[in-house]
């Protein structure tokens, strides 16, 4: 009973947050709604006994990504600071409609017919260890590829942000 109640609250967080992201007229508020939505997803992970994923969700999505989004908004938009109202749509909205609808329909078409298996046995308790072992044995190559990808992204960001001709430093 308690689990159901928590599930409903988390669903409200996730969906309400998601609706808030696209309907809010203030970019900063959109980012805050996004955090609410991420939080709801973390709650789902807890309910699925995937504590590790829940904590990583909080750490990476809220602790890092959402905060960087807020940071970027604060830096790049004067209007965000002045709480100005923005339009949620741009000129590509009619193009976006079929794409979004197509994605929605195809996702629903995949999700509905699947017979979701329910396991009667309790999930493994030491999931962190299992995950670690899996990363370093059967999924080693994908794991390394993802690491390289992230490093490339990091170096790329540094290269983009670097000044073309760094000013000569004053020497005393």
């Amino acid at each position: 009973m308690i689990i159901q109640a928590i599930f409903i609250v988390m669903t409200l967080c996730t969906l309400g947050g998601a609706v808030g992201v696209v309907s809010s007229r203030n970019l900063f508020h959109s980012a805050l709604y996004l955090i609410l939505s991420f939080f709801g997803v973390a709650g789902y992970y807890v309910l699925l006994s995937a504590g590790f994923l829940a904590v990583i969700q909080l750490m990476v999505y809220i602790g890092a990504i959402a905060i960087l989004i807020l940071f970027a908004i604060m830096f790049s938009r004067e209007s965000a600071m002045n709480s100005a109202k923005e339009s949620q749509a741009n000129r590509q909205r009619w193009l976006g409609l079929p794409v979004a609808m197509g994605l929605f329909i195809s996702l629903i078409a995949v999700i509905i017919p699947v017979n979701w298996p329910i396991q009667q046995t309790a999930p493994t308790t030491d999931m962190v260890r299992d995950l670690g072992v899996a990363f370093l044995t059967s999924y080693l190559i994908p794991f390394e590829v993802v690491s390289v990808l992230l490093s490339v992204a990091l170096i790329g960001a540094v290269m983009l942000a670097r000044e073309e001709n760094p000013p000569v430093k004053e020497t005393k």
Partner: peptide, 24 residues
Amino acid sequence: LNVAVLYVVAIGGFSTLSILMGGW
């Protein structure tokens, strides 16, 4: 929790968020 150490770090994100929200 078997991920208590990570949990502590994850919760730290909320205090950053609170300061960011308050400041903005």
